[in-house]
Design a protein around this nucleic acid. Structure first.
Lengths: 130, 130
DNA sequence: TTTCATGCTATACTAAAGTATATCGCTATA
DNA sequence: TATAGCGATATACTTTAGTATAGCATGAAA
């Protein structure tokens, strides 16, 4: 797990009235979600297990390097589980962990805010243009 | 507003069963939250208006360049309102817009998931180390 | 035997994000 | 008059993220 306690990049620690555990939690969540391909990859896993090439085919323009890198990171962060099946040749499947699946709550909150915010901005714009 | 429709960087459009409006909403939200200093800046504004130098002092290691840049971006995105007061010399205050304040719901969801996830990972680790 | 699919990794590169440092016009204070 | 605070901007640089391209070991199909 890549926790923020160790990571000096984002430092909210000294901001008063903001409990440290909250800051760490937000940063952990951000670490899981940021990067160009994390969300697309997670989107492909919503409806169940997928193999490397399946994911690759479903995400236009992703390179195998990035897919490999991001899957490894998601695995390290406990979001995705990688299973090697003892077939010949081996097949490998990726799927959400329970933790990974539950991040949907965060995405839902993001969808809701994003849509409300978009409406707010649109209304503001349309009033300006009367 | 920086909408994702125009931004070709993140492309979930072709992923089946994932409504476009959802994808756009998530990406809009991500655009508001990503970057090293957005969260620290927003944290300083939680309890009300602040001036440039106040924010700068509360965030260790931020440069005026980054603060200026991020505040401008937050303003463009309708998260933060910038008010110029007609004093001598002018004083400038930054505060949340209602939209900006309501992003707290997203942060709350992130805190909740982040803490749960951390516990899950900790439990996993402690079991491994028995 | 050539070709293709799978599940990657290696190397080298470009682009984006962030840092360091200096400066500016204005005003108040010492 | 010198110094400091305010609210920044400019220029140059480094670091991180992402891309392009090639290749490899395995096995199956044509």
């Amino acid at each position: 797990m890549k926790t923020t306690a160790i990571d000096p990049k984002i430092d909210l620690k000294s901001i008063k009235d903001c409990p440290n555990s909250f800051v760490m939690a937000v940063n952990d969540t951000m670490n899981v979600l940021t990067g160009k391909w994390k969300l697309p990859i997670m989107a492909t896993l919503i409806f169940g297990k997928k193999r490397f090439k399946e994911i690759e085919r479903e995400i236009p323009r992703i390179t195998p390097r990035m897919l490999s890198k991001e899957l490894r990171e998601l695995e390290l962060n406990g979001i995705v589980k990688r299973t090697v099946h003892d077939t010949i040749p081996v097949t490998i499947e990726y799927e959400f962990t329970p933790s990974g699946r539950s991040i949907k709550n965060v995405l839902d909150a993001m969808v809701e805010w994003g849509q409300e915010h978009r409406n707010t901005v649109m209304n503001r714009l349309s009033k300006v243009n009367l």
